[in-house]
Nucleic acid binder design. Sequence first.
DNA 1: AATAATAATATTGTCGACAATTTATCTGCT
DNA 2: AGCAGATAAATTGTCGACAATATTATTATT
Lengths: 221, 221
Amino acid sequence: MNFFQEKAVTASDKTFFHLREDIVEGHISSGSKLSEVELSTKYEVSRAVVREAINRLEACNIVERKANVGARVVTLTSEGLLELYQIREALEGMAARLAAQKMPDAEINQLSSLLEGQQDEVKQRNVYYQEAGDLDFHYRIIVGSQNQQLITMLSNGIYHLARMYRVQLGMTGPRVTTAYDEHIHIVRAIANRDGELAEILMRRHIQYSKNNIAVKLSNMK
Amino acid sequence: MNFFQEKAVTASDKTFFHLREDIVEGHISSGSKLSEVELSTKYEVSRAVVREAINRLEACNIVERKANVGARVVTLTSEGLLELYQIREALEGMAARLAAQKMPDAEINQLSSLLEGQQDEVKQRNVYYQEAGDLDFHYRIIVGSQNQQLITMLSNGIYHLARMYRVQLGMTGPRVTTAYDEHIHIVRAIANRDGELAEILMRRHIQYSKNNIAVKLSNMK
DNA sequence: AATAATAATATTGTCGACAATTTATCTGCT
DNA sequence: AGCAGATAAATTGTCGACAATATTATTATT
């Protein structure tokens, strides 16, 4: 599941990863308070490392912190989701454009064959694709952009936030095959080295998934 | 100078701001090592708060840290600058698009009259405009996007990095009047609620300043 | 003399304790 | 009873000390 290989060398790292997973996967519910002492007993580390982990979560926009008061998990709102997808649209659109310019042929071919391999799976509406396959696709293009700052920005922060939304809103299910076709077209544009088209298609693609989620979100309440 | 009002309530905050300024303004040179003990004596605080400050700087991409080794100020490279401007182009382009949709009329008017007020100053090639005026312009549009995550992203991280580049490369000087005209056109598009045009113009505007800096950068070495 | 292994030093990572601030509880007054 | 202020409890912020790791210096061997 971890595409972006993150090695936890220090205890702070481990606590950060644990805590992030517990939040993103919904074991710690959105909006709840993060008590430093409580977490330090739970994860069996000192308060200092919990603090450091929370600070990092704050930098990822996963928790909000007020001085002398404490940290809370961010509350998910439809506005927040909208904002997030606007940012993804901008950044991943740019990533697709850059990938069309810079992504090595070898990587493009790998991506193409990856998609071909997923074709059967998708036709059978295998839900797996939605999660891992989609993530894999987007991540490869981001890496293909060869923009290091863009890569860290997206894989450190934005993707976990986006997943947090999907998990907490119970997003699984359709939009599998349509998304697959969009992926195909995006890769084709990249292979043709047409950055402008790649960007347009990627932005559309993200707009579609945003709308898809937004509809579900409005159906819930 | 501080458009984004940041209040330092805790000692960690103060140290963070001090340290960031010392780095961005070039008092601590790019690539140098940040010793925790050294800084703690310099700023007269404990190592813990220096650590916290460094962690925050790391989240801003201003310093890089290796576990058990330490933190260094990022080294500025022409690739890094290029990457940064690609990100700015994507994000601020989106900000301009959103501002055209959401920015209140009052704020647009304020921005218009701000530019008019700067006109004389610009015609006289007052260098002040380049720095503060340009920053003010961009910041207002970002805020006008009404996308909170976008706002924090740009004002916490990216702008300080961009300024760090300009300072360390000794960027002052021309491109004042041309940039001013571009500003005028962008605001006009926003006032006309033409998000698509606003985005295009903003992206062009950022591409121009990127090229402007890139030329200077290549002339130096 | 050069290299490898080992010891010494310095730096970062982690911890528990204390200080400052906020939040909750209690007391007294109208 | 309800509110204001004072007091107590709990939580976060800061600190200095110790542990673990990395870097440097030393020694031994070829």
